[in-house]
């Protein structure tokens, strides 16, 4: 699936009314409708603003519909739509500001092979406090949080996440590993409190 081509094609798509378009618009609506809650939730995590999240989803709907004939049937529509949502966010004012924040990119050599220094019992967390988990998620670096949301909440496969984020699959794997370790570390005080 060539997302880049799809995104670049946006804005240059001709408008036309043919039988194929009629069918295409109907199936687009069918595919997009169940995704609205997920798209909104993800848009909110990206923008942290309800009004902006709603605008992002609306813009994503418009762009996706115009580019729908480039969507390959049989591939994951959700990943395709999330990719468009993400690109829409990145070109928004909030998104541009966010990308100015430098993220220490994934350096495999810096990634521990195991969580050295932790005893097995340290790994067991009391996660009953939802607010604590939510706060920890909130404190994660944006790229780490984003990969976790796509994996754990949206249940996308690594390959699909790689497409959404436009990064190699190895980067997805290392980010997920780092994200969970960071989340675990942020929850350590919570664990100590519960002991």
């Amino acid at each position: 699936m060539n997302f880049t081509r799809t995104i670049e094609a946006l804005g240059t798509m001709p408008s036309f009314n043919t039988d194929a378009t009629l069918q295409s618009a109907a199936s687009f609506e069918q595919l997009a409708l169940p995704l609205l809650p997920s798209l909104y939730s993800h848009a909110f995590w990206l923008s942290r603003n309800h009004a902006e999240a709603e605008d992002l989803v609306q813009e994503t709907i418009s762009k996706s519909l115009r580019a729908f004939d480039t969507f390959e049937p049989g591939t994951n529509f959700k990943a395709w739509a999330f990719r468009i949502l993400r690109n829409t966010f990145l070109t928004s004012r909030t998104g541009i500001a966010a990308t100015n924040t430098i993220f220490l990119e994934d350096h495999p050599e810096l990634i521990e092979t195991t969580d050295a220094g932790l005893t097995p019992e340290d790994h067991l967390l009391s996660l009953s406090d939802q607010a604590a988990v939510h706060d920890a998620l909130d404190k994660l670096q944006a790229p780490l949080r984003e990969v976790l949301l796509l994996c754990d909440v949206e249940e996308l496969k690594y390959k699909e996440i790689a497409m959404v984020l436009n990064v190699p699959i190895g980067t997805v794997m290392s980010r997920i590993s780092r994200a969970r370790r960071a989340l675990h570390q942020l929850l350590q005080p919570q664990l100590r409190k519960s002991l």
């Binding site: 609205l36 809650p37 909104y40 939730s41 909110f44 995590w45 999240a53 709603e54 969580d115 097995p120 019992e121 790994h123 067991l124 967390l125 996660l127 939802q130 988990v133 939510h134 998620l137 976790l148 949301l149 754990d152 909440v153 969970r180 989340l183 675990h184 929850l187």
Partner: peptide, 23 residues
Amino acid sequence: GLRVISAMQLKAATARAAQRFTA
């Protein structure tokens, strides 16, 4: 084994916590 269970707990907790921002 404990690390796997802990990671699964964290995954489930993340999924639940992240659902807080719903439309």
